[in-house]
Amino acid sequence: MYSVAEVDQEICGATKCRLCTQFCPEGNTILYDEVKGTAYVAVDRCKGCEICVGICDDLAKHHAIKMLPIDQVKNGFDISKVGFKRTLVDSE
C-alpha cells in the first residue's frame, strides 16, 4: 500500500496560493483549477514524496494537504484516463 497527496479543496480554495504546484518534483501532477481556485492531485502521477505537504504546512502555512492511502482515495483524478483538464473533472 502506498499513499498519495490529497488537497482539502475547501481550505485551499479559500487561499490564492498555488505554492505546492511549483515544488512538486513531478510534472502534470499537482494541477490547479482556476475556476474553483484550488489545487488538486493527479493520483496516478503522485509518487508520495510528501514534499507538497511540507510546502503547504511550513511555507504556505495553510495545512491543506494530507497523505492518504491510495485505496481510501475517493474519486481521485487520473490524468492518464482523461488527459489534462483546465478544471477538475470526475475521471470515474
Binding site: 498555488r18 504546484t21 513531478e26 510534472g27 502534470n28 499537482i30 490547479y32 502521477r45 492518464s80 489534462f84
Partner: peptide, 11 residues
C-alpha cells in the same frame, strides 16, 4: 502558471 497548463515533461 504551473498546474494550469500541460507541461512538456511526462511521467
Amino acid at each position: 502558471e504551473l498546474g494550469s497548463f500541460k507541461e512538456a515533461i511526462e511521467e
